[in-house]
Amino acid sequence: MASPASRIPHARLRAGLVVAALGLAALTGCTPSAAQGGESPSAAATATTAPSTTATAPAAASGALDRDELAGLFSGIQFRAAEYDSIAAMLESIYPGLTVSDAACLAPFGAGWESAGDAVEWGTSNDRSMTAVVASAADDAAAKALVAQAEEAIARCANGRELFAMQGVPVTTAVEPFDVAVTGADDVQGWRVTGDVGGSPFTLVGATVRTGQNVLALVGWDPETSADYVPQATQLFVDRIASATAN
């Protein structure tokens, strides 16, 4: 995947961050104003917990990856791991000032996945147009539950599409499935948020993918690259997960 970093002017990057923040607020189906009782991404991520399962993880679960192995997935594909102390801090850096009233709505972004187990890693692409969170859950059932969380959030938080505002700018949105063509994965859930901010269209593209007990949440905000880069980056992660678990 060719490096896109040098092709994104700083002015467009700043504008894109604002549009992305508005798009994320739209996905959550929540108010973007802290004064209206919203939570910051940090509070949201802290409040989000992985669903509990009754299954007991085996002593050496098949396909399990430790955090070092997960960090290795990021290297060589223009992503950086271990740059932020928490997933919430990473999201705040991409979507500054965003607030949400329902933490569960951020599940498609991997928010709160630290609670999914000891092996979780996260980072941004080199050009900061994408974020990725990878968790190696206790077993397949726990991994499936993370995917179900994202699916539920996409369906539930898209209900009642309303007019949103950020700093007085009205936001209209629509959430729809996005066909992410990925091979070698057990579950793939793709989504796209499209909308309008004061006459300027925006798009967010995301994918939640499970390979055995390993789950990836990848989101791209840049409207010029996300439709192509999110599937490409998702496939690269899936291929690396397959290679790591085969060793």
Rank of each mutant, 00 (worst) to 15 (best):
L73M: 02
R80N: 11
A81T: 14
T54S: 15
Q36I: 05
S33L: 09
F178E: 07
G117D: 01
T225P: 00
L204R: 00
D186G: 12
A45W: 08
G220I: 00
A185V: 04
R161E: 15
R12S: 14
T53G: 05
D228G: 13
G76W: 06
E83T: 15
A165F: 05
S243P: 06
P58L: 07
Y84M: 05
V182T: 15
I94A: 09
E151D: 11
E39L: 13
I154R: 03
P41F: 07
L70K: 09
I87T: 12
P96K: 10
S129E: 09
Q189I: 14
A138I: 01
D85R: 11
N126Q: 14
G160H: 05
F74L: 10
G198S: 08
V133T: 02
A104W: 09
A148K: 02
T194P: 09
A44N: 09
L70H: 08
Y84N: 13
T203V: 13
S226E: 02
G38Y: 11
E162H: 14
A88S: 03
V18T: 11
M90L: 15
R128E: 12
A246T: 15
P223L: 05
A148L: 01
Y84L: 04
G29L: 08
A2Q: 14
G110R: 04
R128M: 08
A227V: 06
P108Y: 01
G112T: 09
L98M: 07
I8C: 06
A242T: 15
R7Q: 15
A165I: 01
L13T: 05
P32E: 08
A15N: 12
L91C: 00
D140A: 14
Y84S: 08
G117Q: 01
T48H: 11
D118H: 06
E162F: 11
S33D: 15
E151C: 04
P96I: 13
L216C: 01
N247E: 15
W122Y: 07
L17E: 12
P4R: 14
D222R: 01
L98Y: 03
S129Q: 10
I77S: 03
A174K: 14
A244F: 08
D186R: 10
D140Q: 12
V175M: 12
Q232R: 09
H10S: 13
M166A: 08
R12Y: 14
P201K: 07
A153K: 13
E39S: 11
T194N: 13
M130F: 00
G16F: 05
W191R: 07
M1H: 15
A35Q: 12
V219S: 04
G117P: 01
A89W: 08
L218G: 01
G72T: 05
L13D: 12
T99A: 13
R210E: 09
D139H: 04
V147D: 03
E69T: 10
T54Y: 13
A82V: 07
V120G: 07
P231Y: 01
V18H: 07
G123P: 00
G212P: 00
T131R: 00
